[in-house]
């Protein structure tokens, strides 16, 4: 099958709303969205702490998070597989292996360093006196914290987008702890791999197009929102 044929068939599949492709797309969105959300909920407070305090070893902690950004997904996937492995793994009793939940947890761990690093930089870039300013205008401790976060919003947005992109595009974790089971843990990336293995180039191409359009589209939309705000 040549590229053009594949492309045409792929577009046909997408526009006819092929139920399997819709399902895989929605699951991918849900899994990477949840992973990003969890990573943000944990990562932003950590970033807040790192960005606004000074302590011995802060540089080391930041360096560790920065280097974890590049953690190979395959290594993390394998490591998590060992942990979630039902009988030998320390968390095997949870029965999470080969569930979407396991992928969510794995991807959240994968992208958390991105959130922490980028958000820390964004928060560090905010004038340290913004918290004092908010307070003197009447803000309580938490309202002042929120004011600082809002000043760092652009950077935090970027952290979120970068995390989501990494989560939705990764394969290692999804393969190892998800096992690409059809209708259960199959995602866009694992779907592409599987369909190429099965020589269904058109389906693989359809999934790849969706993945690219989605990553591009989400970035575009968020950038437009950002620009309008300016």
């Amino acid at each position: 099958m040549n590229i053009l044929d594949g492309l045409l068939k792929a577009l046909q599949l997408i526009f006819s709303g092929d139920p399997r492709i819709v399902e895989i797309t929605l699951r991918s969105l849900f899994v990477s969205g949840s992973a990003t959300l969890i990573a943000a909920l944990w990562g932003i407070p950590i970033a807040m702490f790192l960005g606004r305090s000074n302590f011995r070893g802060k540089f080391l902690v930041k360096t560790i998070f920065t280097s974890l950004i590049g953690i190979p997904t395959v290594a993390l996937g394998f490591f998590l597989f060992m942990i979630f492995s039902r009988e030998n793994g320390p968390l095997g009793f949870l029965g999470l292996l080969y569930t979407p939940t396991a992928i969510i947890i794995g991807e959240a761990i994968l992208v958390a360093p991105i959130v922490v690093s980028l958000a820390t930089s964004a928060i560090e870039a905010v004038d340290p006196d913004v918290a004092s300013l908010a307070k003197t205008l009447g803000a309580s401790e938490s309202q002042a914290t929120f004011a600082v976060l809002r000043e760092a919003l652009d950077g935090i947005f970027l952290a979120g987008i970068a995390s989501f992109n990494r989560a939705i595009g990764e394969l290692g974790v999804a393969v190892f702890v998800g096992g690409f089971i059809a209708h259960v843990t199959e995602l866009l990336t694992t779907g592409i791999k599987l369909e190429i293995d099965s020589n269904n180039i058109d389906v693989a191409m359809a999934l790849a197009i969706i993945l690219l359009v989605m990553v591009f589209g989400i970035n575009l939309a968020l950038n437009l929102v950002q620009r309008r705000k300016k």
Partner: peptide, 8 residues
Amino acid sequence: RLESTMVF
């Protein structure tokens, strides 16, 4: 804090 404000 609500009764007192400061301009830096």
